Computed example of a mutant assay.
Amino acid sequence: MSFSASSPSSSASSLPSQPHVLAPYGWDAAWQAEFRPYAAQGLLPGRVVRVDRGQCDLVTEAGPVRADTAFVTPHDPLRVICTGDWAAVEASGNPRYVKAYLPRRTAFVRSTSSQRSEGQILAANVDHAVIAVSLAVELDLGRVERFLALAWESGAQPLVVLTKADLVADPATLAHLVRDVETAAPGVQVLTVSSHTGEGTDVLSAVVADGTGVLLGISGAGKSTLANALLGADVMEVRQTREADGKGRHTTTTRNLLALPGGGVLIDTPGLRGVGLWDAGTGVGQVFAEIEEYARRCRFHDCAHEAEPGCAVLAALDSGELPERRLESYRKLLRENRRIVAKTDARLRSEIRRDWRLKSAEGRANYAAKRTGRA
């Protein structure tokens, strides 16, 4: 049997479907498909907006919910529930429990400051990693590169925002600072923003309106002030930075997911004292893409770029094409990442020990040759 174009079923299917109540928080057809097994169990989807001491706040189709996280607190710190996760929460109960969370599309992870070599997840399902860098203090390009390596590794698109641009009175000086950051951030958009004058906030708002952004940076970078500017209201508490060194106190103490009036959501994070790499080899390679390109032209595929003949990296250094600061920063981050991975990778640990033994033997041989006068 055929149906005419005016049949009720046909006209109903042509009606525009209503957007899901969670669509402003990033809910889409793919998340809905992932959630079907949990929906069959009578659970509600919800996005985690805050985690604190064994409980979390979620936004659900039934409204705000506070739930216990006892079922999603494994021993692995990278598998605990986090701000930005999409979770399956009980529809009723006192207390309610989060029963599971959906597989993450992206995750921003750093190593902890402890000596236990553990990773710490800062935000989940992020599309834009907004790295706030204050122009009120001297630029630390090495720290920018470190943030960028973690951002690329997370799967999010990095964006560097130079805050407090109104404090740089000379346009030529500001342009020079922007060029320095652009050199340290190849392939990454660099914006100058002033929350005081509003400069650049409209551009930033347009970028983060598409998806989920996470705001990262050290204390005093102006993250909370920037978040308030994007929100159009003083939602996040702000404190003055110290005049002596431009550093701030930890105003934000938890990671909070906030809906933006222009669309999209923003995760504001506490200021980070330490930004340790966590298995970020791919991210390091992306930050230093030009060095990786030079390395492909080296004579030896396993060139260490130290003293080998035919090393294209050293040739670029000698010609001035590659700044020495960039190469030193690249080496430093690679060494650090290698150490972190080695603590959890037995095979790599063995390779590093073998390299140490070879270098030690070479050093002893050279010392003996010098003592005896033999080449």
Rank of each mutant, 00 (worst) to 15 (best):
R66P: 06
S319D: 07
G283P: 03
A280H: 00
H176N: 14
H176Q: 15
V160W: 04
I340N: 05
S114T: 13
R357Y: 04
D279H: 10
A185R: 00
D140L: 00
A172H: 14
A304K: 00
L141F: 04
K164A: 08
E290G: 01
K247R: 14
A280S: 06
L215A: 07
L216F: 05
A107T: 09
L348H: 05
A29P: 09
T183P: 04
T252F: 03
E292F: 11
A29T: 14
E153P: 03
L139G: 06
A91F: 12
S114A: 10
R299D: 14
S11W: 07
A184I: 10
I131W: 00
L272T: 04
G281S: 09
L204Y: 00
V109H: 05
C311H: 13
L266A: 06
W86L: 11
G262C: 08
E362K: 10
Q115F: 12
L317V: 06
K359H: 13
R326M: 12
A312I: 13
G42I: 14
F35K: 02
V48W: 01
Q41D: 09
V168H: 03
P186D: 11
G119Y: 02
D245K: 06
Q32S: 13
V133W: 00
S360L: 11
L191E: 09
R297W: 13
D210C: 15
G84H: 03
C56P: 09
R110M: 02
D302F: 07
L334Y: 03
F147G: 01
V181G: 09
A175R: 11
A185V: 03
S111F: 04
Y38M: 04
S360H: 08
L22D: 07
L167Y: 01
G200N: 03
S13C: 00
S195E: 07
L333P: 10
A12W: 06
Y101R: 01
H20W: 01
A169K: 09
P270F: 08
S195M: 04
G142S: 10
R297M: 08
V190E: 03
D170G: 13
A39E: 15
A312K: 11
A209H: 01
D180G: 14
G93D: 09
A5H: 10
Q55N: 14
